[in-house]
């Protein structure tokens, strides 16, 4: 199925400065017994956002401001831990389109790209600016692979491979590309038989 295209995002940012925010924080395992992808946003960062009795904590993620943001600025090594794609499903359902950090774990990064969630690894100085300016409105331009900061914060480029960028910008997923290689795959299987 197609994913939601992403070309530019202009949004205020939520900052979660802790390093090594793992997928158990993003979506605790006890919510993984679902058999669909939908509706996980209410459990995004569940144990930060809710008390034992189910009432909301005063965590910033519960505020109206955060709920209107599409960009998370996170500490180093965001998304470490498990391969659960429920993590990007929860974040996108919450309303997030972009995650920015100085390092993003491999499996989470791959999963994010397949769900219209752009993972950006940015240089330390820009990351520090973002942490120092929580809530500022910034612009992500995927075509130019740039993060544009206001208030003379500057413009920073980020790396994204051409294929992933194309898939995100056009909202296409990889299944079609893989399925189109059917002949080559069959050929390969003959050589391995």
């Amino acid at each position: 199925m197609s994913i939601k295209p992403l070309k530019t995002v202009t949004s205020k940012t939520i900052t979660l400065p802790a390093a090594n925010i793992d997928t158990d924080q993003i979506i605790p395992a006890r919510f993984l017994t679902v058999t669909t992808k939908n509706g996980l946003g209410k459990h995004a960062f569940n144990d930060w956002r809710y008390n034992d009795d189910g009432s909301e904590t005063d965590h910033a993620l519960n505020g109206d401001f955060a709920k209107a943001c599409q960009i998370i600025v996170a500490g180093h090594n965001f998304g470490c831990g498990s391969s659960r794609e429920h993590a990007p499903w929860a974040l996108t359902d919450y309303g997030i389109r972009v995650v920015i950090s100085t390092e993003i774990a491999d499996i989470f990064r791959g999963n994010a790209l397949k769900n219209g969630l752009l993972p950006i690894i940015i240089e330390k100085s820009a990351h520090q600016w973002l942490l120092d300016h929580p809530g500022e409105e910034i612009t992500i331009d995927l075509e130019r692979a740039e993060v544009r900061l206001p208030k003379n914060g500057g413009t920073y480029s980020f790396n994204i491979d051409a294929f992933s960028r194309h898939c995100l910008m056009e909202g296409v997923d990889e299944m079609g590309y893989l399925s189109a290689q059917d002949d080559a795959i069959s050929q390969f299987e003959k050589t391995r038989a």
Binding site: K37, S82, S83, R84, E85, P88, I107, G110, N111, K114, N115, F163, D173, E174, M175, Y177, L178, S179, Q181, D182, I185, E189
Partner: peptide, 18 residues
């Protein structure tokens, strides 16, 4: 190596990954 559910779908359908 570990993969996400979208890639589980890719492998089920094509036996391949990008």
């Amino acid at each position: 190596f570990g993969i996400g559910t979208t890639q589980v779908g890719h492998v089920l359908a094509t036996q391949c990954l990008l």
